[in-house]
Amino acid sequence: MSEHLHQWMDAYLDGELSGIQKIEFELHLKECETCQENWKQQLALKQALTSLQPISGLKSPEVFLAEINMEIGTQKPEINFSFQKSLWYLIPTVLIFLFGALQIFGWVTGLINLIPGANRFLLESLPFINNVTVTNPWLNTTIQAQLLWSGIDWITDWGFLTQIFFLFSLSVLYCVWIVLWINNHQTKSIRV
């Protein structure tokens, strides 16, 4: 091993190297004098940092706690609702529901028929899929067979209720996903 492994020195020192990397580094350390010298310095520094004795604070734990309790008073922990922050989630969610509601309204009243082709749904309305299935009839047969096999062949029968059900399911799934995403990510962005 000709190259020095300085970049692994810290990770080895902190016990962050994986098994193979650790062995590889130890083998290198036995052979390389430059790394040995660096290693000694790092060890000395580590020991110096470890020798820093912990402080216990100027106030006793009881006084420390009493002062905090006095400052807190009778207030209870509460979620601080930020309207400005909630707009980031509220606006897209409202728009999605509004769009869905408009579509349903269009279907119920028949207004949607005024837009050419709007009464058809996904597979028919996507020109790419349409063109491909027209020029390759076997693809259409394959898709139909797959849908039949997986039990969702009804999806191609775009009845009125099916369309509403499908759109509603997608909306629910999307909203669930948004809620889960917010739940998992908001702690990262909170600066208290």
């Binding site: 905090i68 922990p77 509460e78 601080n80 998992n184 702690t187």
Partner: peptide, 18 residues
């Protein structure tokens, strides 16, 4: 540290156990 613990108390409901 005291300020931190006061903020912790105020924002505890926002803490997620993940």
């Amino acid at each position: 540290a005291q300020i931190a613990f006061i903020r912790v108390w105020q924002h505890l409901p926002e803490y997620r156990h993940q």
